[in-house]
Structures are given as structure tokens and as C-alpha cells.
Amino acid sequence: MDSLVVLVLCLSCLLLLSLWRQSSGRGKLPPGPTPLPVIGNILQIGIKDISKSLTNLSKVYGPVFTLYFGLKPIVVLHGYEAVKEALIDLGEEFSGRGIFPLAERANRGFGIVFSNGKKWKEIRRFSLMTLRNFGMGKRSIEDRVQEEARCLVEELRKTKASPCDPTFILGCAPCNVICSIIFHKRFDYKDQQFLNLMEKLNENIKILSSPWIQICNNFSPIIDYFPGTHNKLLKNVAFMKSYILEKVKEHQESMDMNNPQDFIDCFLMKMEKEKHNQPSEFTIESLENTAVDLFGAGTETTSTTLRYALLLLLKHPEVTAKVQEEIERVIGRNRSPCMQDRSHMPYTDAVVHEVQRYIDLLPTSLPHAVTCDIKFRNYLIPKGTTILISLTSVLHDNKEFPNPEMFDPHHFLDEGGNFKKSKYFMPFSAGKRICVGEALAGMELFLFLTSILQNFNLKSLVDPKNLDTTPVVNGFASVPPFYQLCFIPV
């Protein structure tokens, strides 16, 4: 009986604490739906499609509103004006990374994606500088992407125009580009180590996009005490870190300090320079996690976009025909596509942009946080508050993009057929937390897609009208449904 009384008292205290925290903070924060004790607004949000729920709530509470995930307040920004004001106009104040408990377990605050403060700034600055020195957006990395595009075309030829699921092959190409940047090595598509790495990356994007992960991140005790797919994700990350550590040891034994070959060499050189400046942010643990982040951000996002792009091109054969006509006119058949071609191919450029806009790969991006107490639109948001960005509300804005739910390359073309930029184009987020590999991803999408369409016609196994382009999961990332196609050599 005594234990029951204690339990009831504990629960009562928890409920009172929950109510007090919510009521004391709500006077400062933007308005929002009334949260339930302990669980907050979790029942009012469709976990399978958070973005749709945010759109519905914005119609009631406006472009800036507050939700509670458990006891934790989260300020939501919906629509271009609110997102721009926060991420661009007040970029420094909104540059923090929001709480992501599962990532905390995986990387302990290291790396480039989930770190904060001085650690994040130094690692991000170093990573950007190193990638630029190796030619991100310049010639040397373009050579690597072109080489991988040629290998991709050869792998597709091996399908002999038979029906195939493109998931694996389209994942190999961007993964190999990242391998060449980090390890100075590309792998054969049949290499077992490479296959294991690909498998872990593919599993992780599916797990991260599941409703279960949303629950884990908002009720963090689940991570330590409950079984579930989150444990598989943590094991996959541990596998990748151990693999990278092996490569780091190989580099330490063979590195030429006067001739760095890749990202690992550059990081080890930085560690050597910083060894007298303790404590340094440049450690082996930081290198492991930064490399894992580059793999995660640079492989599955690009391969998922490529997979979605081919599905949309199957669905819209008239678009595919126009792209192939432009390829034939500008590039021809006797040389590989290059980035200089893009400025002469406005329709193809528009298609690449429209694919990214339409699929809305990361509907709410990753959570941000404010780095200080900030007054925002007459609300006071306390330091450390998590900020949720609705990228969907920007990419699918119906004023900027008429009929935003329709796939239409003319969203990025003017009346004369010239490519038209849009400030609403934010597939990689915006501001200080914009994806480090934005330029690389854009290069890969253009070169891989043009190389495929230069060499193959795409054949659907069903009537294009019957192809479903609805994402199968739409949590962290929008993942396309399973499909097969035939690559018919031109």
C-alpha cells in the first residue's frame, strides 16, 4: 500500500510540474494548442506526416506557434517570411542545433551535424575549407563525379535492359564520391566492405524516417530501456565508426604531411598542428563522427533524390523527352556531361530543381535551437528552445509555385524558357546551418541524371499514369515507394 501511495504522489508531482512548466512558459512563447500533461501535443500531431499537421496548425495559430513534445516546448516556423527572418536575418541567433537524443547517444555531441557552439563552428569551418581545397564546386571533385558517372552508366548497362530496382546502384554512385573525398578511394560496386557500408546507410535513412524515431526523440528514456529499431540505428553508426577508425589508422601509418590526399589526411594534419593548443576540438573521436556525418549527409540524401527523380521522369515521359532533346543538342553522344553545360541547359536545370522542390526530401529539416534569449515577432523565446522549420511550407508555397503539388519544371523557367532562380528554393535548409555539401549534391544530381539520360531511355513496367509517387515514409525524410524500371541503351 505504501508503495502505491508513493507512486501516486510521484505521478501527481510530475503532472503538477508539467502543468507549471507549460503555464509559466506560455506567456512568453508564441500561441499554440493546449498541451496535455506529460505528453504535450503529441496526440494532435500525425507522426506519419508531421508536415501536414504543421500546415493545419498554422492555419489556426499563424506562421509562428508553439507545440509541446512531452514536456519540451518547440517553436514552429511556417512559411517563407518566418523562416527567412529566423535563419537568414537572425542567422546567428537561430544557428543552434536542437535536442536530438538519439544523435546524442550516437555521437556524444561530436561531428558537424549535431554539434553546437565553438566545437560546431570550428569543425564546420575546417570541413568547408577542406572540401573547397579539394575542389568542391571546382574541377578536381567534378572529375571524381564524372568518373563515377561513367562507372554508374557501365553498371546500368550490365542490367541488359531487364527490369531492376535502382535503389542499390543509385546509392553506390554518391557513396563512392564521398569515399573518394574521405578515403581517396572508390570501391567496386561488388566489394563486400562497400556493400556493408551501403547497407547500413540505407537502413539508417529508413529507420530515421519512421514514426518510432519521432517518439524516441521526444521521450528519450525509451532509447535506453525499450527495444526497437533505434538500437539497430545505433549499432549501424557504431559499425561505421569502427570502419572509419580502421581507415584512420591506415592513414596514420602512411600519411605524407607534405601531400595530403583526402579529408582524413587533412584532419590528422590539423590534429598535429593543434596538439599544443589544448583542449582542441580536433580529436580522433571528432574525426570519426565528422566522417560519419559526411557519409550520412552525402550519400543517402543524394541517392534518395536520384531514385525519386527517375520515378518522376517515368511518370512524366514528356519531361524526359525534353531533357534528352536538350542533352542531344548541347552535349551530344561523344563526350561526358560537365558542369559548364548546365548554363546552356535551362530546361534540365529546371527539372533538377523541380525534383528537389517537389519531393521535399527533408520536410522539417533537422531541429534548430536559439543560442540566446531572443525577441522574435513580439515573442520571447528562451535560450536553448528547439525550433522546428517547415521546409515544406517554403518549397510548396502556392504563391511562389502555382499548383505546388504538381510536378512542373516551369516553376523554374521564365516566359522565355530561361532558368529562373527562386529564393524559396531551400531543399538544403538556409542560413548558417545550410548543408555543407550543397554544391557537391547539386553537381552530382546534374551529372548523374544527364549521364543516365544521355545513355538510356527509361521504360516503366506499368502505365506511367498508374505510377504512385507518394512517399512511403514522410517523417525525417521523404522516401519514394518501391518501383522497377528498364534502362534501355540509346
Rank of each mutant, 00 (worst) to 15 (best):
V479F: 13
M345C: 06
D265R: 03
K84F: 09
D191F: 01
V292Q: 11
T167A: 14
D349V: 13
A103L: 12
K121D: 08
Q261S: 11
Q324D: 04
L413E: 00
F126C: 05
L71K: 13
T371E: 10
S336M: 11
F295E: 01
I387Q: 01
P427C: 15
S220C: 10
I141M: 12
F482H: 08
L268C: 06
E154N: 10
M129R: 15
L87G: 08
V145A: 02
V145S: 02
P337R: 00
G298C: 11
R144Y: 07
D49L: 01
T450K: 00
D360P: 12
F194T: 02
T55P: 08
L9T: 10
R335S: 06
K275T: 13
I359C: 15
F425I: 04
P166R: 01
R342E: 02
E438M: 05
E122V: 13
G62C: 00
A149E: 00
Q252V: 10
L77Y: 03
H251A: 07
G96N: 10
T290V: 13
I207N: 09
I39H: 01
T371P: 07
G62W: 00
N231F: 05
P35M: 04
R342L: 13
E272H: 11
K241R: 15
R307L: 04
L380A: 12
C435H: 05
S365L: 07
L233R: 03
S242M: 07
P166H: 00
T386F: 13
V60K: 15
V355L: 07
H344R: 13
K423E: 11
S3N: 07
K235E: 11
Q146E: 12
Y483N: 02
I389G: 01
I123Y: 10
F267A: 04
L197V: 08
P37D: 01
F110G: 14
A321Y: 11
V490P: 05
F114K: 09
M345G: 00
S343K: 11
P471L: 04
A291G: 06
Y379R: 03
E246L: 07
S51F: 03
N378P: 02
D143F: 07
S254Y: 09
M345Q: 02
F295L: 14
I182V: 14
Q484Y: 02
H410E: 15
T320N: 07
I434Y: 08
T299G: 06
S478R: 13
R97A: 10
E250K: 08
L440R: 00
I389P: 08
F456P: 01
D468R: 12
D360R: 09
N202L: 07
Q484I: 03
L311K: 01
T371C: 11
G117Q: 08
V323I: 15
L36T: 09
L306W: 00
I387A: 05
R157V: 06
Q324H: 10
K420G: 02
L306M: 13
L102W: 15
C10F: 14
F134R: 15
I374S: 10
P471C: 10
R357I: 00
G416I: 11
G109M: 15
V473P: 14
R139F: 11
K206M: 15
N231H: 12
L131I: 14
E326V: 01
L128R: 13
L90R: 15
K247H: 10
F194P: 02
C179G: 05
S162G: 11
G171M: 11
A103G: 14
